[in-house]
Amino acid sequence: MAQLSYREAVSRGIAQEMARDERVMLIGEDIGGAGGVFKTTAGLFEQFGRTRVVDTPISEQAILGAAMGAAMTGLRPIAEIMFSDFFAVCWDIVVNEIAKMRYMTNGQVKMPLVIKSGNGGSLRMGAQHSQSIENWAMAVPGLKVVTPSTPLDVVGLMAAAVRSDDPVLFFEHKGLYASKGEVPDGEIVDELGKAAIRRPGKDATVLALGLMVGRALGAAEELAREGIDVEVIDVRSLVPLDTQTLLTSISRTGRLFTVEENPRLLGWGAEIASIAADECFWDLDMPIRRITTPHIPLPSADSLEDAVLPSVDRIVQDVRKGVSL
């Protein structure tokens, strides 16, 4: 058992899979000799060599095209898109090619690839280097979408993503890279499509993802002092979605809150709210409440960014108000 940082867990997970399967390759900008701009691939170039850990030009379409073509012909690549905001310059290959190829060819090809990317805000990087874009990805049939919130989940979900024969968008939260957690020795393999109950509770269900999981847990601690017992669920995987775990909790507590870092419109919580309204409406004791970043680009200044991202205080206030209804 070791204490690993979230960033170390990324390279640990990749190393585990590259050592196990020689078809697993890693490509991206500055991921080799430099170990990644976020140091999430440190040591892999030295361990696996330049044939399997490939430094690329700043050519996101070329990177994802290479990953796709390789995946179609026997390799199992992991590609890095440095900041998830950069998906916008190669979204054609993700959405129109990678996501649809199996379907359009009537199952002739497999697409075993992972696209890992630094996602999310809180680092004062402004509107083009801070976005949370899981909802872009989950809107496209054919893409699996995961966001781990702990070092242990990083290792296990990376392994599950690499072993999947479907394309997986693996969102690492940049604001969590320095966070630490226990990671057992030995092989760790998790499962896509499983949510995790981080804190059991009976009064309200709070769903969160990535950086927001910790904030939801912080809010739950404060609310516990007021006698409000909150269940916090780390959704972890948006596609596939573990609706059974989510709906079971919502039906039991009767109150649903989502904590979403994305801007308001069509955030991931909107889909879950819709499912809950469809399938457990009569178990609800209050309207569903989404706690999101407002529908604005993220500002750069720390005071402004802190004011608009969902905070512990905002979660506390919204849940307290909801529970008192």
Binding site: G65, G69, A70, M72, L75, D92
Partner: peptide, 14 residues
């Protein structure tokens, strides 16, 4: 455009 990039991937694999 995209498929030139994808073709590279098949070539890389080979």
């Amino acid at each position: 455009g995209a498929h030139l990039c994808v073709a590279n991937g098949a070539a890389w694999s080979a």
